[in-house]
Amino acid sequence: MIVYGSSLSPYVRKTLAFGAEKGLVLENKVSVPGSPDPEFLACSPFRKIPGFRDGDFQISDSSAIITYLEALHPEPNLIPPDPKNRARAVWFEEFADTIVVAAAGPLFFNRIVGPRFMGATCDEAVAAKAENETIPPLLDYLEGLIPTSGFLLEDRLTLADIAVASPFANLGHLNFDLSRWPRAKAYAAAILARPSFAALVAKEARLLGG
């Protein structure tokens, strides 16, 4: 099974970590910037990452890939079978994918991706707005709901934790100050310290010169 895309993307990182927590070996292929891999384009004609291939099956989008992996390898279950907690897991994934990433994306792009990989000038006004206005309310939300168990659902690791923790790696690469949110900071650090994430995050830090 092949996952296409750099793990600097929270979506790619989430997919690779999910597979690792399943005990799966997922090959990760990263295209050279500006030269998309034809195999990736076959999986993802609209260039949405990650792309995915398993034999003759190919698809894109992290949620679609994770749904496939969960159905193909149901144990250990990472999407709770309980109807309410399954719905909550889907909500937390949506929260991470469409709300947190949307808020943090402009900061990560302007401070890291644009200047380092695309020769773009940082739009500091956009970055500062994300840092000071858009992201903090989301961290306030998380700070108020993280259980003492350190897991969002069922006192165990689920897709909810994998999805929510993934964007925190990007905040870490940005040296984002999380001191106002100690519970969220400790929660994310613990999830990102798991072997499924740790090697990915370390590799990304080396790529960024950290």
Score class of each variant (00 low, 15 high):
89 A>V: 07
105 G>C: 00
75 E>C: 05
113 V>K: 06
116 R>W: 06
97 D>R: 02
157 L>A: 07
130 A>W: 01
122 C>M: 12
145 L>N: 03
123 D>Q: 11
151 F>K: 01
69 L>C: 08
177 D>P: 04
65 I>F: 04
195 P>W: 09
100 V>Q: 14
90 V>R: 14
81 P>N: 12
170 N>L: 12
135 I>F: 06
104 A>P: 00
153 L>D: 01
62 S>A: 12
141 Y>C: 10
62 S>R: 05
168 F>L: 09
78 L>K: 12
55 G>S: 02
169 A>T: 08
104 A>I: 10
61 D>I: 03
64 A>S: 11
100 V>F: 15
100 V>P: 00
153 L>E: 00
155 D>H: 12
141 Y>E: 10
144 G>V: 12
96 A>I: 05
64 A>F: 09
199 A>I: 04
66 I>W: 06
184 A>M: 07
137 P>G: 06
188 A>S: 15
200 L>I: 15
128 A>S: 13
64 A>P: 01
143 E>R: 11
95 F>L: 03
112 I>Y: 07
119 G>H: 12
67 T>M: 04
77 N>Y: 12
199 A>M: 08
54 D>I: 00
191 I>N: 07
62 S>L: 04
138 L>Y: 08
165 A>R: 12
191 I>L: 12
168 F>D: 06
88 R>C: 08
55 G>I: 02
93 E>W: 04
138 L>M: 13
62 S>M: 02
186 A>G: 11
171 L>M: 14
126 V>A: 14
114 G>M: 07
147 P>T: 12
184 A>F: 13
123 D>N: 15
103 A>R: 05
159 L>N: 09
80 P>Y: 06
192 L>W: 07
90 V>S: 07
194 R>L: 14
98 T>R: 08
141 Y>K: 11
52 F>A: 01
85 N>P: 01
89 A>E: 03
179 S>T: 15
98 T>W: 03
169 A>E: 13
99 I>S: 09
